[in-house]
Design a protein around this nucleic acid. Structure first.
Lengths: 227, 227
DNA sequence: GAACATAAGATTGTATACAGAGTGGACGGA
DNA sequence: TCCGTCCACTCTGTATACAATCTTATGTTC
């Protein structure tokens, strides 16, 4: 069983703490689909892959567990967290509630650099669709929402939105569901429309489009649970 | 220096993990004002108070740090996190954004038991004001918002709201600010009005009152930064 | 052949040991 | 007296050791 590909050894030169590096490495592995939902995460194995001891790995796992990305299994062990349908929907609802505010603020105060960064995120999403790279598409979409949050200037809301999206993305990636290219294109198109409204400095249009986008997302993904 | 009062030894009999117990104990100590902002949190001391080793204490602290309740000091050590004025306001704005949704849902679907629990929370807040117990008042207020979130049925939003409120409460408690009894009374009155709207099953009134409440809160507390 | 008991192994949870970095204080010199 | 340097101590971060528990496999009995 070759595990090399799963996690590369950390070669952080001791300055940033191993805990942080392990946290990032494990989270990236989950979000890239290298650790699948329901897969068991063994501390010793992860430590070996990262070539550090169990201590910082445990601390990273404790944080990830608290965030809800991983969960303790019945009696023993941790696994990448799945979501029930209701939890999945709750995440989308949460973001629907928040995003209109984010885009309104962004429309009022986003800098040109921030608008350009949003544009780049859309471009990366488009490239990922072309390359049939679902993980890349989801990452670029998360980036878009994160940048939107940053442009709004509200850190807690930004963090919240991104965290919810991470959890739904993990589900999508791990469930083996394939997102229809048409759906990805639609999502990208909606992002583009929001960005246009931001450039026009039109908060109400932006908010309307954000609500539409959030609802579309929820509908598109909720369908996945039927199959 | 008698530290006995700060943290009582854990006498969890090994079933719930020490990490969880330590997390709760430390968090409670912070929210009760026993650990003040800018106070240095020394792992060894905390471990000694809880009569456990540093390992689970460190894990608990890692989580609290990730949550933002504590933060690493310049080069060395952890301290109870303070908030800048902007961060403080951002927390209130975040909750303002979310709470209208929560109360709308709660108006539609809160059970009688949940309404009664909300009523109890208001009563506890009132008792705390009478007893000139600011910490108790803030705890009861947090309970009110938490119960509101639970009644809404959206776990992520509930968690988010409570977490934000914890952070602002820590600031209020630790800053040594005294909240005017009149302000506490006003807040309780607004909670009562929201609860009435829930009982009437009137989502729009409830939402309106929630917005008013959130804005009032923000204004009342923002004033504290002037002094 | 099936089911249960028992033992060995795997894995977690906690404690302790150790190394490195930062802080504070004491001592010496200007 | 004030400043600087150096040393000791404190505290963090990581590693390792140990204990307890759960799993699994094997063997024995019915």
């Amino acid at each position: 069983m070759i595990q090399t590909a799963l996690l590369a050894p950390l070669n952080v030169d001791r300055a940033p703490r191993y805990r942080e590096a392990a946290y990032t490495a494990i989270k990236s592995a989950i979000l890239d689909g290298r650790f699948a939902p329901n897969q068991s995460l063994v501390e010793e194995q992860i430590a070996a892959m990262l070539q550090i001891s169990r201590t910082p790995v445990r601390e990273a796992l404790a944080i990830l567990e608290h965030e809800g990305l991983i969960a303790p299994r019945q009696g023993r062990g941790l696994y990448v967290a799945t979501l029930t349908r209701d939890e999945f929907v709750a995440m989308f609802v949460a973001n629907e509630t928040v995003e209109p505010y984010l885009v309104r603020r962004a429309a009022l105060q986003a800098s040109l650099e921030q608008l350009e960064a949003l544009n780049q995120a859309i471009r990366r999403a488009q490239e990922a669709v072309t390359a049939i790279d679902m993980v890349g598409f989801l990452r670029a979409s998360r980036d878009f929402h994160r940048l939107l949050g940053e442009a709004s200037g509200n850190a807690p809301l930004t963090r919240f939105v991104v965290q919810n999206e991470e959890r739904t993305d993990i589900y999508l990636i791990g469930s083996g569901q394939r997102i229809e290219p048409a759906n990805m294109e639609a999502s990208i198109h909606e992002h583009g429309a929001i960005l246009d409204a931001l450039i026009q400095r039109d908060p109400e249009s932006a908010a309307r489009l954000a609500i539409y986008h959030a609802q579309s997302l929820r509908q598109r993904f909720a369908e996945l649970f039927r199959s």
